[in-house]
Computed example of a mutant assay.
Amino acid sequence: MKKLLLITLLSLFLLPLAHAQFGIKGGLNVAELTGRDGETSSYKPFYHVGIFYQANLLGPLSIQPEVQYSLQGGNLKSAYTDYDSQLHYLTVPILAKLTVGPVFVEAGPQFGVLLSANQKGNLQVGFTPDGQPAYGNQSRPATSEFKRGDFSVVGGVGLKLGSSFSLGGRLVAGLNDINDAKNLSGINDPRLQNRVFQVYAALQFGGKE
């Protein structure tokens, strides 16, 4: 009886692997940082690359965890500043995927870890002798100005072109504040969230769906 139970549990674990597909993917990020009062944000083009694993669960439903290197950020502009932020993330989307014919939809959470950040453009560089903010053109590391963790929701659609190649598009909407300015609060809190539109191509290897 114990052997039968063990075989059953192993079969349930290995069955998705028999229908799994590993793959590589990459594409365009069009990203912005939203939420900061007193500044206008605009989108900037970046990129992402990664690997993924798709395992069939039941019929057209599968689960697809991924690991990606994602470069994102955006442009922020105020009356005195105009600069680009580049945020280098390691992201882990875990998506449920529904495939009907050549069309698929996908959705789920994404967890991100900030690897590094930098800013370039007209920034506040200090203060004048009379205590007024001073601005100048500068490129500088900015990792300490952002929180290391990011949590997002992901939704997307795509098209399978043959058994191994697919194209897709996603919206990645950040839910938490990634700005690390701890000295401001309330209406003056410069809250920032990631927003990324992704277009990608994916190539799959392995089992058949």
Rank of each mutant, 00 (worst) to 15 (best):
G131I: 14
E32H: 00
F46I: 00
Q72G: 00
L87Q: 09
K44L: 02
A117W: 06
L28P: 01
N137S: 05
L71G: 00
E209Q: 08
Q110Y: 02
N56G: 15
Q110M: 11
R170G: 01
Q198W: 05
K97C: 03
F165A: 12
P60G: 15
G27S: 02
L28K: 00
Q68N: 15
G207P: 09
L184A: 15
L14N: 10
K97M: 07
A202T: 05
D180K: 14
P16R: 06
P190Y: 11
N118P: 03
V172Q: 10
L15R: 09
N176Q: 10
F104R: 08
V157A: 14
G162Y: 02
K25M: 02
S70K: 05
D150K: 00
I178F: 07
E66Q: 15
F46Q: 03
V125H: 07
G126L: 08
Y47P: 02
H19A: 13
D84N: 15
R36F: 05
Q21Y: 01
L95C: 14
L114T: 10
E66I: 09
G126T: 10
T143L: 01
L14V: 13
L159M: 11
D130G: 13
P141V: 00
S139K: 10
L159T: 04
R191F: 09
Q110V: 04
D177R: 12
L61V: 12
P65A: 12
L123A: 09
F146W: 00
Y53E: 13
G26W: 01
